[in-house]
């Protein structure tokens, strides 16, 4: 028996995978240091604004992936 991994079978699947990886990166180490200052934006610390943006970005991305039929 081969030891193959299940990978996306279509280009839409790959788009889905990369979109999710990008979102995770946006909320973690490579990006967070860039936002780690005392700036206040829309009345909130920039990291708080970013967390709210991530909430909507995640939902927006998942909605787009649903529309594309990814993870059906």
């Amino acid at each position: 028996m081969k030891a193959t991994f299940r990978t996306p079978k279509t280009y839409k699947g790959w788009i889905g995978l990369f979109s999710i990886l990008i979102i995770v990166l946006l909320g973690s180490w490579p990006v967070i240091p860039l936002l780690n200052h005392e700036t206040i934006l829309f009345g909130m610390p920039i990291l708080m604004v970013w967390s709210v943006i991530l909430i909507f970005l995640t939902t927006g991305t998942l909605m787009a992936l649903n529309k594309m039929g990814v993870n059906e």
Binding site: I20, I23, V24, G27, S28, P45, L47, M48, S51, V52, L54, I55, T58, T59, L62, N71
Partner: peptide, 23 residues
């Protein structure tokens, strides 16, 4: 202070896990 925001981020990302694995 702001370290608490990791909670908001991880709860958000748990939505991705539910979206992928749930179905």
């Amino acid at each position: 202070g702001v370290p608490v925001l990791y909670v908001v981020v991880y709860l958000t990302f748990m939505g991705i896990t539910a979206w992928y694995l749930g179905p």
